[in-house]
Amino acid sequence: MQASIDTVERNVKMMNVWLKETSQELGGIDEDDAWRRLRAVLQTIRDRVTIDEAAHFAAQLPILARGLFYEDWRPSESPQKWRDRGEYLEAINAKISNDGAADPEETLRAVLKVIERHIDAGEVEKVKEMHPKEMWDLWPS
């Protein structure tokens, strides 16, 4: 039983790291806003990649982030074929669920920096390549 508790505690700590880093990348926003923005980007990535790639990517996320990633997913509607930057950023903005004050491009850039710190570089590159080339400049590397 202790091993299970340790796993949960480790994942809560890792999720807190992701939220703190997201907050810092976005100028010190509060945890609730960091949570919403992290969820919005993870779900937009999920909706753009193939089902198989979504599973590979999600396997590297902390368990709680994986929950955000899969929340409300409709695999039969994946992958979305957003063709341009505007459609993609609008998808993020729609998922942020706020009063419109968040900048979806700033949010995407910030969360991608956090993802890049914690996910295997090869996996990040595969996900990036499933996005339109006009989006690649938003990725940190």
Results as ranks from 00 to 15, higher is better:
Gly28His: 08
Thr22Trp: 04
Ile51His: 12
Arg117Trp: 06
Ala54Ser: 15
Ser78Gln: 15
Ser4Gly: 12
Val12Arg: 11
Val111Ala: 01
Leu68Ile: 03
Asp99Ala: 11
Trp82Phe: 15
Gln80Cys: 10
Gln24Ala: 14
Ala91Leu: 06
Ala34Ile: 01
Pro62Arg: 08
Met15Thr: 15
Ala58Asn: 05
Met15Trp: 04
Ala91Glu: 10
Asp137Ile: 04
Trp18Gly: 00
Pro79Val: 00
Lys95Ala: 00
Lys95His: 05
Ser4Phe: 10
Asp137Tyr: 13
Ile51Glu: 12
Arg39Asn: 10
Ala101Met: 08
Asp32Val: 12
Glu31Ala: 12
Val41Ala: 04
Arg66His: 11
Arg48Thr: 14
Arg37Lys: 15
Pro75Asn: 09
His118Cys: 07
Glu129Phe: 06
Arg83Thr: 11
Tyr70Thr: 00
Asp52Leu: 02
Arg83Ser: 15
Arg46Tyr: 06
Trp18Pro: 04
Glu31Leu: 10
Val127Gly: 05
Gly27Arg: 05
Met135Ala: 07
Trp139Ala: 03
Gly86Ser: 15
Leu89Ile: 07
Trp136Glu: 03
Glu125Cys: 01
Ile45Ser: 01
Leu42Trp: 07
Glu106Trp: 00
Val41Ser: 06
Leu138Ile: 01
Val8Asp: 00
His56Ala: 11
Glu116Lys: 13
Asp6Gln: 13
Ser78Phe: 11
Leu68Gly: 05
Lys126Pro: 02
Ile119Asp: 05
Phe69Met: 07
Ile5Gly: 07
Gly67Met: 09
Phe57Ala: 05
Met1Tyr: 10
Glu21Asp: 14
Leu89Thr: 07
Gly27Gln: 00
Gln60Met: 03
Ala91Arg: 10
Asn11Thr: 06
Ile45Glu: 00
Glu123Leu: 14
Glu125Ala: 12
Phe57Tyr: 11
Trp73Ala: 15
Ala94Ile: 09
Val124Gly: 02
Ser4Lys: 12
Ile5His: 03
Lys113Gly: 10
Arg66Ser: 11
Ala3Asn: 10
Leu38Ile: 02
Pro104Gly: 04
Gly100Pro: 07
Gln2Tyr: 05
Thr44Gly: 07
Gly100Gln: 07
Arg74Lys: 13
Val8Ala: 15
Ser23Val: 07
Asn98Gln: 10
Ile45Gly: 02
Lys133Cys: 00
Gln2Glu: 13
Asp52Gly: 09
Lys81Cys: 09
Gly100His: 09
Ala3Pro: 11
Lys126Ile: 13
Glu31Asp: 13
Ala91Pro: 01
Gln80Val: 13
Leu42Tyr: 00
Tyr88Ile: 12
Glu9Tyr: 01
Ser76Pro: 01
Lys81Arg: 14
Asn16Arg: 15
Lys113Phe: 03
Tyr70Lys: 09
Glu25Leu: 10
Ile51Pro: 08
Leu64Thr: 06
Ala3Trp: 12
Leu108Ala: 13
Ala58His: 08
Leu64Phe: 15
Val124Asn: 03
Pro62Lys: 05
Glu90Val: 12
Trp35Glu: 03
Val8Phe: 13
Lys20Tyr: 06
Ser23Glu: 08
Ser23Cys: 02
Glu77Ala: 14
Gln80Pro: 06
Lys13Gln: 14
Val124Ala: 08
Glu90Asn: 12
Pro79Phe: 02
Ser4Thr: 06
Glu116Val: 03
Ala3Val: 07
